[in-house]
Design a binder for these strands. Sequence first.
DNA 1: CTGGCCTGTTGCACTTGATGAAACCATACA
DNA 2: TGTATGGTTTCATCAAGTGCAACAGGCCAG
Lengths: 260, 260
Amino acid sequence: MEQPEQPGTVYSIRAVQRVCNILDLIQENPHGFSLTQVAEVTQFPKSSAYRYLATLESRRYVMRDPITGLFRIGPAFLPLQSRQVTVLADRVRPHLIRLRDQFEESVNLGILNGYRVSYVEIVESPHSVRLAAREGDRDHLHCTALGKAIAATLDDDRVTMILETEGMPQHTPATITELPEYLQDLEATRERGYAIDNCENESDGRCIAVSLADAGMPAAISVSAPASRLSLDDLPDVAKALKDTVKKLVKEINGERPTS
Amino acid sequence: MEQPEQPGTVYSIRAVQRVCNILDLIQENPHGFSLTQVAEVTQFPKSSAYRYLATLESRRYVMRDPITGLFRIGPAFLPLQSRQVTVLADRVRPHLIRLRDQFEESVNLGILNGYRVSYVEIVESPHSVRLAAREGDRDHLHCTALGKAIAATLDDDRVTMILETEGMPQHTPATITELPEYLQDLEATRERGYAIDNCENESDGRCIAVSLADAGMPAAISVSAPASRLSLDDLPDVAKALKDTVKKLVKEINGERPTS
DNA sequence: CTGGCCTGTTGCACTTGATGAAACCATACA
DNA sequence: TGTATGGTTTCATCAAGTGCAACAGGCCAG
């Protein structure tokens, strides 16, 4: 497990690799983990794992639950989280506004937030009748275009785990509620390069989304509208505009580097 | 710099401390930093700093801008950020609903998001006429109760930097637009234990907020209403309910431990 | 155009901090 | 009461980390 992921990098400090392994574990276990788990997953001896956690705890990158004894993410990481979303939102906003002006429909930026999609930016359609997300909502992955676009960038095992945890409640008659059907939909999403919510989250609401995963973010942008104003025939054009936008964004965010 | 912050912790691995120093630097420098800066701030020799960064880069906890050569936060941290907000929001929501039912006004959870406040949860008043935040908005710190509540937990130097960067635009005739006056308001906020937006963000909109900083979060919860339904005389009662709620939340989030 | 300065990268000899097995401690449960 | 499991500490050993100095490359001023 302790090998560099990027070839060409000459240096690798074992202790730093070990800290990274623990950071990975922290992220994969939001509800906490035990010393034994750390030792098992990372293959460290318990004593070593114990010392690493103790040092991270002293710097508040890890917290220890006094009742259960479990370790979990500490407050020292907080500045990181709020800032990344900001940087993303700031960069994306002008593009969303431009797309909204182009299609005159609501345009959104969503980010994977635990097991759901959280709306980070919403630029609403100028129409009185519009399909707009609600503030603070964190929608399911299975019935939203943003959710599907993001899920399509995750491996099927993780998607399966998320949906088994969150469930796949029926929102409309069109909602996909069976896992195999949903995984097929994800495969189709990957092939098309965009996700479709065809009245699955809300009756008469249609939405199309493209992932921002190439920018290193579990995020996506979408256009949504009442189905009466966004027909299935319109989707390829909207998809093209979204893909072009994503391409620009990825370039801005990553610089000129091609993604790996 | 390399000393444990929490007494009683026997173990301290030097390399782990050094990684933490770099993590701190990453968070304090969202626009990137140079190798020389790392060496200066952390007091590492350049060669050591270089090797630490190279190892972190190989695990994608750090990214290297190919044009400027600057280092910045890498995508490996992304899962952390989205999840912390989720955990917070999940814990807070039932409390917000209870407060909304109690006061029949809109109740919000906001979190510091770069230099502004982002709305994480909004539970709207049942009234037809209501003061409710807009989805996706990230409001200024200077004219919102949430912003003041969070700013009051930061030191004045950081607040000054934020406001000089973001500006203090006039939203209503009541908006505070001078820094010294705002810092005085923050002092009063600290003394009261709650922040007040007295028609400063929106005319006829009043809002009161209490910080969640004791839960290790740069966040706050608030109640907002049209001024006609939330008089200044009502504020102490609402404040008490918010403070009690925060006390419960802090206990849930931190466990039985007293905050340091 | 050249020299100086600064930042980033590498080599190498040395040493210091890290290591992990095993023992110990505490708690829970049958 | 004994056993099992998870967490914590001891201690002898050594492997990884270290940092100075040199090198490489780029930029800028004279």
